[in-house]
Nucleic acid binder design. Structure first.
Length: 553
RNA sequence: UGGGGCGUCGCCAAGUGGUUAAGGCACCGGGUUUUGAUCCCGGCAUCGGAGGUUCGAAUCCUCCCGCCCCAGCCA
């Protein structure tokens, strides 16, 4: 809806010319995840590209599971992926699609190719096949089974399908060109034996189609016009086209590749993310430090900001690494506009106001948002004892006003939406640490400018000592302390940031936060954005991201 | 040493022979501010390199350099 005059990317240019030439009347795309892990921020870009294009051209985008390898796939992933795509805000008019729904059709197309003398059953084992394939610089050698009669291949394929052949003993291969400079064309495998139950087809099949033999045909069945994938599939395109050209398909889809999203200080590889989960380096796929959609959601990152970020990215053929700061900008941008404001003291230090009645309570109001009246207002009880953050107080009165805009002994500070107060003296505990500040309010300063002669150094947040909500706050830092965790020698695991999670107990939140619910976003003023943790029964807030702070100290 | 793809500001990225080479992020100044936030104003590149074509090139040609992907019965 907020489509600016952003220039067309190369795929849009292709679509425009396809529409102009009449080759395409309705744009159909698809987002084709393999259910072998949870979706991450990189997938979000692909989702936005595919669903976004369908939306822009009044077309259709299917959510289709590329479930051709039961060895790695699981229903848990299917469910999680559907939830994540929905949460991101996308819908599809067709039912969810599955490659496994096309297994029968794929099988008969395989038979067709055999009949056409364009596929054969090969009995080379994995190692032999590798040797016969040749190398990057040397062509391969034809398989001794290459000229096997079609009738024989047909019969063997049937046996493979029926479970009469052991795994690894045979494969169905396309007969293309063992001398091709493109290794993908050196008689690629179309079917391999896997005597394994599939989450959707059960034990019906003992053979499963390879990605290359399945993907283009799935697209053709669904009438996909523009099959958009990432750069690493560019070398597979000639093979994609070979199947499209040699099979009697209902449509002729075309493949286009764009650069996947890479972010620094994190990893976006399902394999690596799964390793982090399996080896318990994180709590799970939805650990708030994970770049997964579910992790980001639990962290408090909004779907809107993920979409905004993805839409800010270029759809091009360069494979760069986007700075995390660019993502963070969009996270803050949305939260700043929409998160309700609140106050929460993370490291409470008691302040007793001696000139304020010990049993007195005033109810102050503060806006839910500084410039959005529709977010209403909140009530803040004020009492003679309040908490402020330990970091907001200093005994060093030589600190310049510019350098330290907080409370200093003998000086004034504004308590946000409340009184201006002064710190008069401190109390210490046995270890010498400050245990309490004794101070006083400046009367009649609520909602009023400071009186003549009094200049508060700044504004700090606070919470009533007798009327607040106890809570725990979880602060997160980047999961890796190296910009490119998987570059160079060693494992990406060597660069895990040991301080990526900091749990702060005993925080004091303004009383209204006692009823905060998961899914809500708050800005704790002067601190950052927080969201209640969906996995906790107690009041626990996850820090989504801190506020920008431009002051160097 | 094979094939495919890519190189424009610290990062992302427009640009498709004639523009002062967009924009965003980051950064640096300044203003507003009961959040050191937000917001506002301003600053910030000659296009991987070398030749060449042209009145004129980031855009065309040549050579060179660099980076990424492909040798799973993974996707």
């Amino acid at each position: 809806m907020t489509h600016s005059q952003k220039p067309n990317n190369f795929i849009q240019q292709v679509i425009n010319s396809d529409i102009e030439s009449g080759d395409v009347s309705q744009v159909i795309t698809r987002f084709p995840p393999e259910p072998n892990g949870y979706l991450h921020i990189g997938h979000a870009k692909s989702i936005c590209v595919n669903f976004g294009l369908a939306e822009q051209y009044d077309g259709v985008c299917n959510l289709r599971f590329d479930d051709t390898n039961p060895e790695k796939e699981d229903q848990e992933y299917v469910d999680a992926i559907i939830e994540d795509v929905r949460w991101l805000g996308f819908n599809w008019q067709n039912d969810v699609c599955y490659a496994s729904d096309y297994f029968d059709q794929l099988y008969s197309w395989a038979q067709f190719l055999i009949t056409q003398n364009k596929a054969y059953i090969c009995e080379l084992n994995a190692e032999q096949m590798r040797e016969y394939r040749g190398t990057l610089t040397q062509g391969g050698v034809n398989s001794p089974f290459r000229e096997r009669p079609a009738a024989e291949s047909l019969a063997l394929l049937e046996q493979m399908k029926n479970g009469e052949i052991d795994e690894g003993r045979m494969t169905l291969r396309a007969k293309i060109d063992m001398a091709s400079a493109n290794i993908n064309l050196r008689d690629p495998v179309m079917y391999r034996i896997k005597k394994m139950a599939h989450q959707r087809t059960g034990d019906r099949w003992n053979i499963y189609p390879s990605y290359d033999f399945a993907h283009g045909q799935e697209d053709a069945i669904e009438g996909v016009t523009h099959s958009i994938c990432t750069l690493e599939f560019a070398a597979n395109r000639p093979l994609y086209e070979w199947f499209v050209a040699n099979l009697p398909l209902p449509s002729k889809p075309r493949q286009y590749e764009f650069g996947r999203l890479n972010l620094n200080y994190t990893v976006t590889s399902k394999r690596k993310l799964k390793q982090l989960v399996d080896e318990k380096h994180v709590e799970g796929w939805d650990d708030p430090r994970m770049p997964t959609i579910s992790g980001l959601r639990r962290r408090g990152v909004s779907a809107q900001s993920i979409r905004d970020f993805c839409n800010s990215l270029a759809v091009a053929k360069t494979d760069g690494v986007v700075d995390m700061a660019q993502f963070e900008h969009f996270i803050r941008d949305d939260l700043n506009n929409n998160a309700r404001r609140a106050m929460c003291v993370l490291d409470p230090l008691l302040v007793t106001l001696t000139n304020y009645g010990a049993d007195k309570t005033e109810q102050f109001t503060a806006p839910g948002h500084p410039n959005r009246d529709d977010l209403g207002e909140r009530r803040l009880p004020f009492t003679h004892q309040v908490y402020i953050d330990r970091n907001d107080f200093s005994e060093d009165s030589s600190l310049s006003r510019k350098k330290f805009k907080r409370l200093v002994i003998g000086d004034y500070v504004r308590l946000r939406s409340a009184y201006i107060i002064r710190a008069d003296q401190v109390k210490r505990d046995a270890s010498g640490e400050i245990s309490e500040i004794i101070g006083s309010i400046v009367p009649d300063t609520v909602g009023q400018d400071a009186p003549e002669g009094i200049r508060p150094r700044g504004v700090i947040h606070w919470v009533s000592a007798s009327s607040s909500a106890d809570c725990t706050v979880k602060m997160y830092d980047r999961l890796f302390n190296k910009a490119a965790p998987d570059a160079g020698e060693g494992s990406f695991l060597d660069h895990i940031n040991p301080e990526s999670l900091r749990i702060i107990k005993g925080c004091k939140a303004e009383i209204g936060l006692a009823s905060a619910c998961a899914g809500e976003h708050y800005q704790f003023e002067r601190e950052g954005y927080f969201t209640p943790d969906s996995k906790s029964s107690e009041l626990v807030f996850n820090c989504t991201i801190g506020l920008r702070d431009n002051w160097n100290s």
